[in-house]
Design a protein around this nucleic acid. Structure first.
Length: 422
RNA sequence: GUGCCCAUAGCUCAGCCGGUAGAGCGCUGGAUUGUGGUUCCAGAUGUCACGGGUUCGAUCCCCGUUGGGCACCCCA
């Protein structure tokens, strides 16, 4: 019989790492609250059409990376490969535009894409993201980027770079693409093999080439920022200006290409040095046309981002050492009557807010060994004598000193109110 | 989906030219019948990823599968 293992591209987040994940999550929830960003939870799977229409039929995500299956009623179901389309679907379905103000919605959860696994790339991966829907104002873009900036700073990521671009709108982008293709015709044969292929399949991708010999030619290619129409240019100027006022450093990256069809105008990406080939820790952008693509008549311009939580944790791992939850008190019962008493004591102590573990080994030596390994601050020794007298032996694990304490003294010492006195 | 590299104890890794396996850490027991950390002694680590082939004989060589890493592609 073959032992069953986690399927390719998925993994278990074990303790103590799972605890570090939870810590990060509570920290980002706290930051979201400051921005009046509210949580939304959408289903892990949706009708397939949501993604083919929302994300775009021609994108890699939709054309080859989705987990799609036919449900028993014949409908096509897809495990969400990203969450923006789902959030927009929910926004439209529940008429969130009728709520006061613009909607700022955040989410934390798993996404699914069938790609070849690699460091920092999993088939089930986790995203922390937000969508701000209801305004096309550039100040909103700046606020979203500021939020992301706070998120990374306060969770402890450093040496990240903010790459900013504006990919134009449905008016100016086609013009730019035509210009780009024209220019590529003349320099194409000077470029690397990959770029010669890209010139045909995905011209925008050529701009993102890393081959140094190609750079001199790429620099000659037209830039999207020079092709902006009047309104896109003005929009981008306000975004940049506001970020500058906020002292948030960014780099204009006219070559920044985002793979999802719904992006227009502002797009951004944060990269981090320690992540290897998958150095992008988050990506985002504006998607004013998405609601219409989903068939809604509600005007719902929006901008959002998504942090790769797996990559975020990877970037943090460098500096956050071995974390270990602390244990206030380890109860060491040395016999059956003591064990019964300890069950009651533990419940009372936990009721008072203390973190308490009850030993199951009647040998004191083993109990103390375990208490030490569990990083207990105190161990309470409860043997026959203690059960009889009602006075328990409390041992301070760091100093080794011991004192006899009453049940009442114990409860007050370990209650939350006096926690700082421990 | 393509190319290259890799897979030995729970973890990190040795293992020579083919002769069926080791270290450190960790784990378990003891030195100590009610006293942890340091120390000392002892013990178990294992289908050498899985399946086939070559060979008298395979952890080692060959093929396939699965999983991992890197690059491409793409993205978080």
């Amino acid at each position: 019989m073959v032992v069953i293992k986690a399927v390719r591209g998925t993994r278990d987040i074990l303790p103590p790492v799972a605890g570090a994940w939870a810590e990060v999550e509570s920290k980002v929830r706290c930051i979201f609250r400051r921005y009046r960003c509210e949580e939304i939870r959408t289903p892990a799977f949706e009708e397939s059409e949501l993604f083919s229409r929302g994300v775009g039929e021609e994108t890699d995500i939709v054309s080859k990376e989705m987990y799609t299956f036919t449900d028993r009623d014949g409908s096509s179901i897809t495990l969400r490969p990203e969450n923006t389309a789902s959030v927009m679907r929910a926004y439209i379905e529940h008429r969130l535009d009728q709520r006061p103000g613009i909607q700022k919605l955040f989410y934390i959860g798993p996404m699914f894409r069938r790609e070849r696994p690699q460091k920092g790339r999993y088939r089930q991966f986790h995203q922390i993201g937000a969508e701000v829907i209801g305004s096309d104002r550039p100040e909103v873009d700046a606020e979203v980027i500021t939020l992301v900036y706070d998120l990374l700073q306060e969770t402890g990521v450093d040496d990240f770079r903010i790459l900013l671009n504006s990919v134009g709108c449905s008016d100016c982008r086609p013009v730019f693409l035509a210009r780009l293709k024209d220019s590529l015709v003349s320099v194409k044969k000077e470029l690397c093999q990959d770029c010669q292929r890209r010139s045909e399949t995905n011209p925008l991708r050529v701009l993102d080439c890393k081959v140094s010999a190609d750079q001199q030619f790429i620099d000659q290619l037209p830039s999207i920022v020079d092709s902006h129409c009047q309104s896109c240019r003005e929009h981008f100027e306000v975004v940049k200006g506001t970020l500058t006022d906020l002292h948030i450093p960014f780099t204009i990256q006219p070559r920044l290409v985002r793979g999802l069809d719904y992006y227009m105008r502002t797009t951004f990406e944060f990269t981090q040095g320690t992540l290897g080939a998958q150095n992008s820790i988050l990506g985002g952008g504006r998607y004013d046309g998405l609601a219409a693509q989903l068939g809604s008549r509600i005007y719902a311009p929006g901008i959002g981002f998504s942090i790769g939580q797996d990559r975020l944790m990877m970037a943090l791992e460098e500096r956050c050492g071995q974390r270990r939850d602390s244990l206030d008190l380890f109860l060491a019962p040395l016999g059956v009557p003591a064990a019964r008493l300890c069950a009651v004591l533990a419940h009372e102590l936990r009721g008072g807010g203390a973190t308490v573990e009850v030993g199951v080994d009647a040998k004191l030596k083993r109990a103390l060994e375990l208490a030490h390994k569990l990083n207990a601050r105190y161990t309470l020794i409860v043997g026959d004598d203690e059960v009889r007298t009602g006075q328990f032996l409390l041992k301070d694990m760091s100093t080794g000193s011991q004192e006899l304490v009453s049940r009442q003294h114990l409860l007050s010492k370990f209650s939350t109110a006096t926690e700082h006195g421990i």
